[in-house]
Design a protein around this nucleic acid. Sequence first.
DNA 1: ACGACCTGTATTGTCGACAATATTGTCGGC
DNA 2: GCCGACAATATTGTCGACAATACAGGTCGT
Lengths: 208, 208
Amino acid sequence: MVADTRVVEELKAAILRGEFSPRQRLVEIELCEQFDASRFAVRAALQALEADGLVERQRNRGARIREIGIDEAVEITEVRQVVEGLIARRAAERVSVDEAEALAAIGRAMHEAVAAGEVAEYSDLNARLHSMLRDIARHEKANSIIAHLHGQMVRHQFALSRVPGRSKVSVHQHQAIIDAVVEGDGDAAEQAMRTHIASVADALRGIG
Amino acid sequence: MVADTRVVEELKAAILRGEFSPRQRLVEIELCEQFDASRFAVRAALQALEADGLVERQRNRGARIREIGIDEAVEITEVRQVVEGLIARRAAERVSVDEAEALAAIGRAMHEAVAAGEVAEYSDLNARLHSMLRDIARHEKANSIIAHLHGQMVRHQFALSRVPGRSKVSVHQHQAIIDAVVEGDGDAAEQAMRTHIASVADALRGIG
DNA sequence: ACGACCTGTATTGTCGACAATATTGTCGGC
DNA sequence: GCCGACAATATTGTCGACAATACAGGTCGT
């Protein structure tokens, strides 16, 4: 991934923004024009994104956006369940008083967002909470694996956020995680996180 | 990773066999001679192995074998702890009678190997057991993550196998995993696996 | 009308040459 | 003798051109 980091980042961002549909072909020359780069840089970017699991390539057939079905999304969520469980446990063991207060503030904001029916705001807070837990846990390997898995889930994440009534359920699960972490109870934090993501997995299976 | 899969595999195998030392520079032209390949293929291989976490590259400075310190090895083991826990749970839920018998056979062979003091044989059985559990669990995402993490651990794995008395301890942990999986008890299987890998993590910390 | 084959086109794979950059070695000044 | 600047070398980065391959559409024979 040495060659021109710019192209890699822009292409990845474009995919994550959903500018390409699953199984859509990615023709190298078209990408060259779109990102104003050489074929060399585009090829390197495609190779990097293949390793990221965002695109798939077949010899002499080129690259296409990898399609991630419900079954694979469920598997990803199952792995996330245990790895984020580890993160929650570590966060509970290492949380500082300042961080604890910040977590509690997110919890309060979540309740307000749900009460006001602001789904976009709630979705944003959700991302902030998980991200903050990763920062607190300071577990590089776990964090990088979660980032890797998250990149493959964007499309389904979007579908999930549209399932009606999910925020009402998940706000209590989030609160349970926050409480356990703030109290420094690693066991409870891991358990709460696993319960939470298990319900995400169930919701995913419900879509399929 | 389209280009010449042969070079990627051979280079990866060579690294895993320990033919290069950590932080050793990998000069492209030397690799070209060693594997009788073009620089193009070698570059592609290096890029692929960078994504694999085996090699690190800096712009205009080339590639070198990535050094994985004890602290990182511990983090890897902590992630393995929860992901292999998931695998053990799934294996317990899906095991067939034939598979159960095969697991039990490995358990008996392990006891014999320990009694006879055959450490190489025991190490081999250990790999076979974990591999068989992955086959039984049939969880692609979990399996691929474990494979990915395992590749970065080879050096430390070797160091671990030389810690005296480890096999005497771990044989009982392995038996506990086998028993739980054979009985189809997912909770117990996950717990046993986590206990087992926790002791691996402790041994690693002891080395450092 | 249908299928096998063949040809043209679009696209990707590979290479060799050159440019850009880092690293090493050398020299002169102090 | 030591330090900085500069030159020489080693190594990687980038590109354009060509080869190899797959795919689509048409042609021929039956």
